[in-house]
């Protein structure tokens, strides 16, 4: 039997909102350490890696490892039926072909359950090595979302150039060109609002704005976002989910033909 109960049910609502536009279906791999999900978008240039640790749930039971293939649009529709303050429980019998979501209102007066058919997905799994990146940028997630939204009006690609002075986001297109420079925050009094850059060597890479705007759907999950870059490898955009895990997006850089 698998059962995962989360008092902060809004986390699961936000997680689905953060991945349902990029992925159509994915497998939730559950074991006693928690829930992992890894899937590429249809074009295979971006990937989502979600981790929700068992110890972040208010109750977590996983008698046998279980992989549940789900249509993410359906899951998003079900989770839209949960209130922001509801407790959400996900449960499934061993080798079941359905999963049940139970929503309990804070005063326990309303309990809803939604049963959904599981899918047989044989999605390939990529091995992503732990990597030391040349540049990592920690910044307010709302700031990053704003930059992606603003610059994507100027062109379908964004150049991210990181040096020890700071990070520059640029885009050019028919209407002109745009540059946004963020300097490293000097006095870090409020960590959440700081721009913190760790740079071993400068990196400049180009990415498709469309995917970056999909990634920023995760903004409500974390006040900060971390960008990790090295020459000629995919960008990593990470949103930490407090006390339970993270959601990481990977995006292949655009390279000259």
């Amino acid at each position: 039997m698998f059962e995962a109960r989360l008092l902060r049910g809004s986390i699961l609502k936000k997680v689905l909102e953060a991945i349902k536009d990029l992925l159509t279906q994915a497998t939730f791999d559950c074991d006693d350490s928690g829930i992992q999900l890894q899937a590429m978008d249809n074009s295979h240039v971006s990937l989502v890696s979600l981790q929700l640790r068992a110890d972040g749930f208010d109750k977590y039971r996983c008698d046998r490892n279980i992989s549940m293939g789900m249509n993410l649009n359906s899951v998003a529709k079900i989770l839209k039926c949960a209130g922001d303050k509801d407790t959400v429980t996900m449960k499934a019998q061993d080798n079941a072909d359905t999963v049940t979501f139970v929503f309990e209102s804070p005063n326990q007066e309303k309990v809803s359950d939604y049963e959904m058919k599981l899918m047989n997905l044989d999605l390939e799994h990529l091995g992503i090595p732990e990597t030391e990146y040349s540049c990592t940028i920690r910044m307010p997630s709302a700031e990053f979302a704003r930059i992606c939204r603003d610059l994507s009006q100027f062109g379908d690609s964004m150049v991210i150039a990181c040096t020890k002075e700071g990070v520059k986001f640029s885009a050019t297109g028919e209407i002109g060109s745009a540059n946004i420079k963020l300097a490293q925050t000097a006095s870090v009094d409020k960590e959440e609002e700081a721009v913190i850059i760790e740079m071993d060597e400068p990196v400049t890479l180009t990415f498709a704005c469309q995917y970056l705007n999909y990634f920023t759907k995760a903004t409500s999950l974390s006040p900060q976002v971390q960008l990790s870059m090295s020459a000629d490898v995919p960008l990593v955009v990470e949103y930490r989910i407090q006390d339970i895990g993270h959601i990481r997006y990977y995006l292949a850089p655009k390279i000259e033909d």
Binding site: H44, L126, I128, P234, Y250, K254, I255
Partner: peptide, 14 residues
């Protein structure tokens, strides 16, 4: 023009 590699170019399929 530019292109993007599929992520299998960067990460090993397990």
């Amino acid at each position: 023009a530019t292109h993007q590699h599929c992520l299998r170019v960067y990460y090993q399929v397990q």
